[in-house]
């Protein structure tokens, strides 16, 4: 039910969904402008570049997951709700993932082609992004929860959360690179899946605790 609420909130303001995608597109366009249009060069940096942009757009949006609810008092009600906070938080972050990470993963083939990523690796890119951004949403939720009570949380959240994103970045790019070079990407996707399970198990707990602190402060 909460998931449906969050999703319809997102859909009623489509610009919020569109923004990360446009951001993604703009930064992708920056790479050739900064590095040069040589296609081999672009193909070489493509996996890393796409993953770093995904990281940033997930980071930029995660700040807003709880903010509007904090501002209008809904968050207080959520904490008092009879259902376990763990599940509510999971629903919020799941909604966040669907409108940012999953959507990004689904449109990423377009950007992959723009950066001249070999077509063979596109499938792996989509799967790795879908798995990885879910971890990013869950980890980002912790930072969002801890900083939601602060007036200027935006910069702080990147300082808190970006170091924790590193394993996802490493294995996400590794998966794509493996696919580019023709070796099996399965192990890396499995590692991303393992991280996702860990993040599902522990992330919402930390997020819930963070929300209680932010409400209390």
């Amino acid at each position: 039910m909460l998931l449906r609420r969050q999703l319809s909130l997102a859909i009623r303001r489509p610009i919020e969904i569109g923004n990360p995608l446009v951001f993604f597109a703009i930064v992708v366009a920056m790479f050739p402008l900064g590095i040069g249009p040589a296609s081999e060069q672009l193909a070489m940096i493509a996996p890393g570049a796409i993953w770093i942009i995904a990281l940033l757009s997930s980071l930029l949006t995660s700040d807003s997951v709880f903010r509007s609810d904090f501002d209008d008092g809904s968050l207080e009600q959520l904490l008092l709700a009879p259902q376990p906070l763990y599940l509510s938080v999971l629903a919020y972050l799941c909604a966040h993932w669907i409108v940012t990470g999953l959507l990004l993963a689904l449109v990423s083939p377009v950007f992959a082609l723009m950066l001249n990523l070999p077509a063979a690796a596109v499938g792996t890119l989509v799967v790795s992004l879908a798995l990885g951004t879910a971890v990013l949403s869950l980890v980002g939720g912790i930072g969002a929860a801890l900083t939601v009570g602060l007036k200027r949380g935006g910069m702080l959240i990147s300082l808190l959360i970006l170091p924790l994103y590193i394993p996802v970045l490493i294995f996400g790019t590794a998966a794509v690179q493996a696919a580019v070079s023709g070796s099996p990407a399965g192990p890396f996707l499995a590692l991303l899946g393992a991280m996702l399970s860990l993040a599902i198990a522990l992330g919402p707990l930390a997020t819930a605790a963070g929300l209680r602190i932010s409400i209390d402060a």
Partner: peptide, 30 residues
């Protein structure tokens, strides 16, 4: 768990009054 009504309305501008109530975060039940 008590029912708490605070200073803030906890009403989402994007949702209608009906939706605000039926999807209320503290709902639990529909």
């Amino acid at each position: 768990v008590p029912l708490y009504v605070g200073h803030q309305a906890a009403v989402k501008g994007l949702l209608s009054a009906r939706e605000n109530l039926s999807w209320h975060v503290s709902g639990g039940c529909v």
